[in-house]
Each structure stands twice: as C-alpha cells, then as structure tokens.
C-alpha cells in the first residue's frame, strides 16, 4: 500500500533529491530524465528516458531511484524505460542551466538544437563558464561524457565542457 502514505507530488520531491551521477550539481528531475510518476495500490511506476542511448549512467539512475524510494518507505518500485519522445536539452530549465554554469560546464545554448548535418557545427556562440568571454573555440564534438563537447576559451585559455544541445 503506497498511495495512502504518499502523493505524486511527494514522490517528485523525493526524486528531485537525487543528483546526476556524472554532474552532481543538477538532479535527475532537472535533467529531464524522469518523465512520469504513477501511483497505484500496489506500486509506484517511474518512467524514465535516456539522455543518450549508450549513457552508462542509466543503470545508476534506476538503482538510485529504487534506493531513494525504498528509504522513504516505498517498497514496490517499477522502472519503465521509454525512448519516445526522445530526450532533449530543451527540457532543462533556467535554474539547472545556471547550476551547470557555476559548476564550470557551459549549458546548452537555448533554441540551438543541433540539426545541421554537414559542416554546420554547433551554436554560433558558447560563452566561457568561467570568464564569460564569448571568444571560444570548439576543440572536439566529443568530450568527457556522451552529452558534452570540448571547448577552449581564447581569453582565459581554460578548456571547458559544453553541454551539447540536442
């Protein structure tokens, strides 16, 4: 019996305490990975979607969700993995974007979903998360995790991660 003790809102609150395993300053709800919370007499069903198909953090997301809800006294938790609609950085709010910037990761530039296929790489301007200079260059489309690209600031010379806009 779960729904006598907890509301859907409370469960969203519990989930919003879980940090992203790779970028601990933002939570899995801010990232937009949690899509739906459903309650019934028998169980709680949490629907999640991967950021990237090969994202190795997905298993950790599942384990952390189950562990956190167990700690809150919810015993039967089911994880439902969906691929549609495909995850997009557009689901990331302003607060999460600001947290990323403070952490040293340039957040995805709004409205620049990367659809160009040939030689139209990335957004025009990615500001350095440290010195805010807009004089930065793309070093590599691929960075330390699937969701990031590598940039370098030409003003303060620091390399930095950019959260790719997809």
């Amino acid at each position: 019996m779960v729904n006598e003790k907890h509301t859907e809102k409370q469960i969203w609150e519990f989930l919003s305490e879980i940090p992203d395993p790779e970028i601990p300053v933002i939570t899995i709800t801010e990232l937009g990975v949690v899509r739906k919370v459903e309650l019934s007499n028998e169980k709680v069903i949490i629907t999640i979607t991967p950021t990237y198909t090969g994202c190795p953090a997905m298993k950790l997301f599942e384990d952390e969700i189950i562990k956190t809800l167990h700690e809150k006294g919810i015993e039967t938790v089911e994880i439902n993995l969906v691929y549609s609609p495909a995850w997009t950085t557009a689901w990331m709010g302003d607060i999460a974007r600001e947290k990323l910037r403070k952490y040293g990761i340039a957040p995805p530039v709004k409205g620049s979903e990367d659809k160009g296929i040939l030689f139209e790489s990335g957004p025009k301007v990615v500001a350095c998360p440290r010195c805010k200079s807009e004089n930065t260059i793309l070093k590599s489309q691929f960075g330390s995790t699937a969701c990031k690209a590598l940039y370098q600031c030409e003003t303060c010379l620091e390399p930095f991660d950019y959260f790719k806009c997809i």
């Binding site: 991967p50 990237y52 198909t53 969906v82 691929y83 549609s84 609609p85 495909a86 995850w87 990367d114 659809k115 160009g116 296929i117 040939l118 030689f119 790489s121 489309q141 691929f142 699937a146 790719k164 997809i166």
Partner: peptide, 19 residues
Amino acid sequence: AHAAKSIKEVTYHLRHSSE
C-alpha cells in the same frame, strides 16, 4: 522511437567523419 532517438547521435557521427 529508436530512429528518432538515434538520429540525434548519428548527426554528430556523420559530421565528425565528414569533417
């Protein structure tokens, strides 16, 4: 759903190999 998801990743792959 698989195609809609994968196209986002493959777009980066094609750009990388083309460049």
